[in-house]
Write a protein that binds this DNA or RNA. Structure first.
Lengths: 170, 170
DNA sequence: TTGGAAAGTCAACAAGGCTGACTTAAAACA
DNA sequence: TGTTTTAAGTCAGCCTTGTTGACTTTCCAA
C-alpha cells in the first residue's frame, strides 16, 4: 500500500515525486481509474439503451433541478445539437420534464421526473459503491489528497463550475 | 484548501467523509478532472487529425516497445477491429512499425518509430505539465492519497495491468 | 496433419461528438 | 414602436470510435 517512490516526504517538501516516471504513473492511474469509475453506470445504462451522454445530463439536471438548457450546456461542454439529441429522448421517455420559464418564456427549465430520479439514484448509487470502497481502502487522508489533486487538475472554467456547486446540499 | 467535511480525522478513522454528499463531490471531481486531463493532448492530436484512440495506442506502445497486438488489446479494452483501424493509420503515417515475430511469426510486435516517439513525447509532456502543476499545488501528501484512491478505484484486471508496469523504468 | 490461436480485413451499424443553416418566440433595446 | 439579440430547438451532414459478424491467412503445436 505504501508508495514506493519516496513520496513519504519525511521532513521537507520532497520533490522526488515529480520525476517523469512518477508523473507517468499518475497519468496511467487516471486512465485506468476512469475506466473503473464509469464501468458500473455504463452497465446499467446499457440495459435501458442509454449511453454516458444520458448519464451526464441526468446527473447535472438532478444536481440543480430547474436549471436552463444553457446552464446545462456550459456544464457539459458540448454543443446544443449534441445535448438536444440526448435531452429529447429523455423527455420522450418521461425521465426529464422541460417547463417554460415563468419570468423569461424563452427559457426551458429542466427537471427530473420521479422515473428520472429513480434512474439517477441507481446510477449514482452504483458509482458511490465503488467510490466508497476506494475511499475506505485508501483512508481519510488519501481522500483529501485525491480531491485536492483532482481539483488542481481541472481547467479554471470547470473548476469554477465544480466549486460553485460545492455546498448546495441537495 | 482544507476539507470542509471533517476529513481531518483527529483521532480515529472518522466515517464522516463517507456521506453521499462527499461521495458525490468525489464523483464530480473525477468527471471535471478527467476533462482537464485529456484537454492538452487532445489539442495536439487535433492538429494532426488524430483522436484519443491514437493517443492511447501510442502511449501503450511506447510503454512497452515490441509488445504484441493482443497485449495491447488487453490493455486498451477495445475490439481488435477498433484497434486495427487506428493502428493502420499510425503505421501508414510512419509513426508505428509492426514487425513479424521471430519466434512466433503470427505475432506482430509493435514499435514506435522516431516520428512516433517524437509525437509521444509531445503528448505526454503536455500531460505531464498539467500533472506537475497539480501535484505542486496539492503537495506530496495529497499526491500519495490521489494515487491510492485511484488505484483502489480500478477494476481488478486493470489494476493488475497498472501494477505490472509499475517499475519497468523505460 | 489437423485443430486452433493470432492477426488482419470487410461490411454494416450505433453513439455521440461536430459544423452550418435556419426557425420561432420572446426579451431587450434604441 | 420597430429592430436586434438571445434561448431554444431542428434539420442535414460529417467524423471518430466503438460494436458484431463473417471470413481469410498464417503457422504453432498436439
Amino acid at each position: 500500500m505504501a508508495e514506493g517512490g519516496g513520496a513519504a516526504s519525511p521532513g521537507g517538501e520532497s520533490l522526488l515525486f515529480l520525476t517523469d516516471e512518477q508523473l507517468r504513473k499518475g497519468i496511467e492511474a487516471m486512465f485506468f481509474a476512469y475506466r473503473g469509475f464509469t464501468a458500473d453506470p455504463d452497465r446499467i445504462l446499457e440495459t435501458r439503451g442509454y449511453g454516458r451522454a444520458h448519464h451526464r445530463a441526468i446527473h447535472f439536471i438532478n444536481r440543480q433541478q430547474g436549471q436552463t438548457v444553457n446552464t446545462l450546456l456550459a456544464m457539459l461542454g458540448v454543443t446544443k445539437q449534441s445535448l438536444n439529441r440526448v435531452l429529447r429522448t429523455l423527455i420522450e421517455d418521461g425521465l426529464v420534464e422541460s417547463r417554460v420559464g415563468r419570468k423569461d418564456k424563452r427559457e426551458r427549465h429542466l427537471f427530473l421526473t420521479e422515473d428520472g430520479k429513480a434512474l439517477e439514484r441507481s446510477l449514482s448509487e452504483a458509482q458511490r459503491v465503488r467510490m466508497r470502497a476506494a475511499y475506505r481502502a485508501a483512508g481519510p487522508a488519501a481522500v483529501a489528497g485525491f480531491r485536492q489533486v483532482l481539483e488542481a487538475m481541472m481547467d479554471p472554467d470547470l473548476r469554477r463550475h465544480y466549486q460553485a456547486m460545492k455546498d448546495s446540499g441537495t
